[in-house]
Amino acid sequence: MRIPHFLSAFAAALALACTGDRSKDADASTTFRVALLTPGPITDHSWNAGAYSGLLEIRDSLGAEISHIQTKTPAEFEENFREYGKRGYSLIFGHGFEFQDAVRRVAPLFPKSVYVVTSSQLAGPNFAGIRFAFEEPAYIAGMIAASVSRTGVIGLLGGTELPPVHAGFTAFRDGVRRVRPESRILVSFVGNWDDASAAKEQALAQIAQGADVIFQNADAAGLGVFQAAREKTGVVVIGSNSDQNGVAPDVVLGSVVIDLPRAYLTVARVIRDGRFTGSVFELGAASEVVRYVANPAMPGRVPHAAQVTADSVWQAFVNGSFHLDPDEATRETSR
């Protein structure tokens, strides 16, 4: 008698599963479903962590059903974009410039979904890039770094030289030179975004060359830069992408923040309300998505006069009376 019992239970479960599935399918047309592909771990306190908080914000504020997946290779980018398209997701984020080729290929196949690539200039009927004016707060950070440095040597440390990273570094350098034209600027790249140990050694190498302010943009590897600064007295770090002031409050001067949660929410609202026009989402100083956040645990480190100047330049960015030429940064990258 046991077997039939088991069988009927199994059949009941199967039937339940089927109806469950059907109701979900019916829901699919009405619920707002949002997916996110990140190029790295969401535990990096930086670029990927910010995107994931954005996704959670979309769930909490807009009641969306969400899904996240971590991807590594371009083949995986395409595969997962297809998969989410097939499953009828309304909005699919590819978190970073490196996703744009995959979106260009996959998006036309799934016209009902909208694909959004962060840090990209992409635009089409159902896909678009978000362009963060990261270079505006990076410029401010450069001005502040120059006013804080005692040695006049300033380090830049990145993961790999992606165009958005390059643009940020170029603006930072311009900011430094505006305040101290004679300062020496060192640039190092780890070659990947994971090797925190190598990033730490590279930071130490820059410190050995006299650098006492380091602007890092290396995601998870960047954690090594904070550790290097902790071991050497008088060295401060400027963080990137997320507000990293709390990661190492004793050595972080401030962070060049892209408020990814706010940006994701802004974009998701536009898509949900059907206001998407097929053009690039331009998010700069005026949108409050990008900004420089000073570390509150390190007060009085920046000279007052320098802070006032930096604030006035920031106001000029906000009201549009001063802007950097993004084309110049892009052109230099394509060398």
């Binding site: 771990p41 994971d194 090797d195 925190a196 550790q227």
Partner: peptide, 16 residues
């Protein structure tokens, strides 16, 4: 060694 005598934290794929 990577965690305890170098970086002071774990990061995904830090074996690199």
């Amino acid at each position: 060694c990577l965690v305890l005598s170098q970086v002071g934290t774990f990061a995904d794929g830090m074996s690199a």
